[in-house]
């Protein structure tokens, strides 16, 4: 049979995307579908009996579980606090980096370094730094004469602050990097023109820089929102599990506890799926924006 050049060429094009597509279908899409089916059963890894279909019972149980609601609430609080801190700091640092500087390269490497570091180990390092007795952070707080020394890891009312500090240290570099790249792509002409017209630097920021960055900022914020929602490594390494009084009980920790605590695969799948739905809802704007661009 003769295959025309055109068809052959078309097949060749699909051959190029095939490996990536197959790997993703096999190891991401297929297990997710399977996991969805599992979430409708009472499958436990510890019991030998055949899993039975129980419909939406897992979902109803999870949504009624106080611990789930607590972890959802904590996740939302954590997300709001840490994303706000990261975006404000990231924007400020990027604006500073974009000015005339000496030793910019070294400054940037240092300031962006945490981005590449292993989150679990970052959690452990901060666990040492924030230790209530021997931690260096509390030592310096005592030195500058602070009266009430926070118990970062033991006092439930400080848990969110601790998590936000560590998450901000770890994730602000990415935000800085993105915004810095955005700033670099703004042509100097606009700013020069505004200066000629006598605009102050505050005016330039609010009237020119910020509007031109707005599209990028939205994407950066959405990415951070989605990624903060699934924070697990640093929470787990800082607090081992739920932390004091379950104050560090976030969705990731909740899911992990169900999985490793009771081996209840059906229920764990249901929690995964709820997280997936939340992620999808949060990432719709990102995907739509990418589609436009």
């Amino acid at each position: 049979m003769q295959i025309s050049y055109r068809t052959k060429n078309n097949i060749c094009k699909y051959m190029f995307i095939l490996p990536a597509l197959l790997i993703l279908l096999f190891s991401v899409v297929y297990p997710w579908i399977w996991s969805f089916c599992t979430s409708m059963t009472n499958w436990r890894l510890t019991s030998a009996s055949v899993p039975e279909f129980i419909g939406l019972k897992n979902y109803i149980d999870v949504l009624k579980d106080d611990k789930f609601l607590l972890s959802l609430r904590n996740s939302i609080i954590f997300m709001l606090l840490s994303v706000m801190a990261q975006v404000v700091l990231g924007l400020a640092i990027a604006l500073l980096l974009n000015r005339r500087l000496f030793a910019r390269r070294i400054l940037m490497i240092g300031i962006l370094l945490p981005y590449m570091l292993t989150p679990t180990m970052v959690g452990l390092v901060w666990k040492m730094l924030l230790h209530s007795n021997w931690g260096i952070v509390n030592y310096y707080l005592r030195t500058i004469g602070l009266n009430t020394i926070p118990d970062w890891l033991g006092d439930p009312s400080f848990t969110m602050l601790t998590l936000t500090v560590v998450a901000t240290w770890l994730h602000t570099p990415w935000v800085t990097l993105m915004i810095f790249a955005g700033l670099q792509s703004i042509s100097d002409e606009y700013i020069e023109a505004a200066k000629v017209d006598g605009a102050s630097s505050v005016q330039i920021f609010w009237r020119i820089t910020l509007p031109m960055l707005s599209k990028l900022l939205v994407i950066v914020i959405l990415f951070r929102v989605v990624f903060s929602f699934r924070e697990f490594d640093i929470i787990y390494s800082l607090f081992n599990s739920g932390g004091p009084g379950n104050s560090a009980m976030l969705l990731g920790v909740y899911l992990y506890q169900i999985f490793s605590g009771s081996w209840d695969i059906g229920r764990a799948s249901a929690v995964s799926f709820i997280m997936l739905v939340i992620t999808i809802i949060l990432s719709i704007p990102v995907v739509l924006r990418k589609k436009e661009g």
């Binding site: 597509l21 993703l24 991401v28 297990p31 929602f229 695969i265 995964s272 992620t279 999808i280 990432s283």
Partner: peptide, 23 residues
């Protein structure tokens, strides 16, 4: 295809943990 690539990027590893485990 390019949307599919972006969408898989947004998936949470902690959520993907169970599907991966099943597989």
């Amino acid at each position: 295809f390019s949307l599919f690539i972006i969408a898989t990027r947004m998936l949470p590893p902690i959520g993907t943990m169970i599907p991966f485990f099943l597989l």
